[in-house]
Design a protein around this nucleic acid. Sequence first.
DNA 1: TCCGAAGTTTCGGCATACCGAAAATATAGC
DNA 2: GCTATATTTTCGGTATGCCGAAACTTCGGA
Lengths: 241, 241
Amino acid sequence: MASKVSTPGSESSSVQDYVKTIYALSEWHDEPVTSSRLAARLSVANSSVSEMIRKLAELGLVNHTPYRPVELTADGRRLALAMVRRHRLIETFLVRDLDYRWDEVHDEAELLEHTVSDTFIDRLDARLGFPSVDPHGDPIPTAAGAITLPDALPLDSFDDGHSGRVTRISDEDPQLLRFLAAEDIGIGSPVEVLGRTPFGGPLRARVGTGTGARDFSFGKELTGAIWVESVGRHAGCSLVP
Amino acid sequence: MASKVSTPGSESSSVQDYVKTIYALSEWHDEPVTSSRLAARLSVANSSVSEMIRKLAELGLVNHTPYRPVELTADGRRLALAMVRRHRLIETFLVRDLDYRWDEVHDEAELLEHTVSDTFIDRLDARLGFPSVDPHGDPIPTAAGAITLPDALPLDSFDDGHSGRVTRISDEDPQLLRFLAAEDIGIGSPVEVLGRTPFGGPLRARVGTGTGARDFSFGKELTGAIWVESVGRHAGCSLVP
DNA sequence: TCCGAAGTTTCGGCATACCGAAAATATAGC
DNA sequence: GCTATATTTTCGGTATGCCGAAACTTCGGA
Ligand SMILES: [Mn+2]
Ligand SMILES: [Mn+2]
Ligand SMILES: [Mn+2]
Ligand SMILES: [Mn+2]
């Protein structure tokens, strides 16, 4: 019988954040999740991560061999998706009902996700009309723990000449979000890659439609944070845990 | 210059809860706030309260002489009112926007009050139309820290024959709230005290208006939890810190 | 194959906030 | 005024989660 980690309850907020971060590091890329990557993301010392990983393993939330990367168990993944759902529903609520800007919601959601009850989350979900993505285009897992990842790639992995639509923008850096908002680039914006400037220079692309279309140079930070879905293709893969 | 405790920020949620509870114990009654009363309210050991009181004194939030009751300083009162405001606005939001029943909101607000930002609270306040009381009739302090206490008395201190309107019901006990809701007694209900049953028996009163009026026996728990404002009198005293 | 740099874990310590038991104090009744 | 009882504080200890420094493992290059 599977253990009952369908709902965050007994776990401390630290445990919840570690598990959620392990998931987040492997949601879009699939590099191994190491102690040092976790430490950097969570802004804690490596030694703190080592200790917590031992605890997570004891709780059955991760599998871990010392000195190796860490991986979520089925229970860990369930807990992570429950936290991701909370985080993204709260962000959506803050933008839609409390007039937050999309660069203001992440930090507030990072705290609230640990505090609200299941009832609160379910009521919010209903009130918002069961949204499928948050304000940054991140997919929102269902109450049952299913998530549909869009078939998107980071802008820097697009070939020259290809075009698509912005599907997701990393919400980690509020300044980046504010910059893009000021430039009128957001979820749904059409993009066509024109070419690369050599020696690590920016990626040039055509953004927007009709009269609003213009050329834009995307630096390294931006091309990694902006995810684009090819025009024509669609669907994405549905993963049920 | 007064210190800047206008906003909860650096204090831990424990500190916030202790200060809020000290205020709550003296808001309606004015018995001295002792360690043991605090311990009972907070469900912690007396020794824990003693230690925390020392800390609160160091933080300048309470005045305290060992073995004597504790009293809030001006800073402590400011912090307490900020927390009370948070608690009551959150309760109002849960009832009005998320369809919580009035007996479900207290526990959720008890946690959320420590987690939401000032921005969140201000947006909520505006969205709710700057409410002056919460779902239990408790007055909501303004952002500036002013609170208007209604001119109400507990039902058990009313003389026979007097009548009034229910102004406030303690939200401590969800079962009591559910019972009253089922009996259709709530904020605003008219009440006329008919008399007392001797030897600690219930207080009999006429409740409701017109065809809905009926006699009702209020036990000890109820007469202490229900606060009534005399019909005719009104106003209440406005306290600015 | 061996070595060193890079990454990981262990260890001793700190801060917060609890607890029960023991010591200290206040006060009510005599 | 003195003392017994109730209340409060102090004290040693637990649990969580963080840190830096030191010890340990891995792995690529020589
Ligand atoms: Mn978080
Ligand atoms: Mn987001
Ligand atoms: Mn609280
Ligand atoms: Mn209330």
